[in-house]
């Protein structure tokens, strides 16, 4: 299935900003992070289609997944 993956901040280094990628049915957020060698301990904010999700969330065709490290500001 086709998923749009967006990476931010330090996650972009050596990877990409945005990419359309193919994953097997039944893939989770954790699977995508693994495929990009993003250690789970470094994942801060995860969103699918503008909503926060957890690592075990199943992806479906056409989803946009955004992954950020832990960030702050304000």
């Amino acid at each position: 299935m086709i998923i749009t993956v967006k990476l931010f901040a330090s996650f972009r280094a050596g990877r990409f900003d945005i990419e359309t990628r193919d994953y097997p049915e039944g893939s989770t957020v954790a699977d995508v992070a693994d495929s990009l060698s993003l250690p789970q301990s470094e994942l801060g904010i995860m969103m699918i289609n503008n909503r926060h999700v957890k690592l075990d969330r199943l992806l479906v065709e056409g989803d946009t997944l955004a992954l950020f490290p832990l960030l702050g500001g304000g």
Binding site: F8, A9, M47, N50, F68, L70, G72
Partner: peptide, 25 residues
């Protein structure tokens, strides 16, 4: 040691939030 105060804020400043807030709608 904390990722926000040790890495994120020094590297990108507070404006790192633009993409986060935009993504969150």
């Amino acid at each position: 040691k904390h990722p926000v105060t040790g890495e994120g804020l020094p590297a990108y400043g507070t404006n790192v939030l633009t993409n986060v807030l935009n993504e969150a709608g």
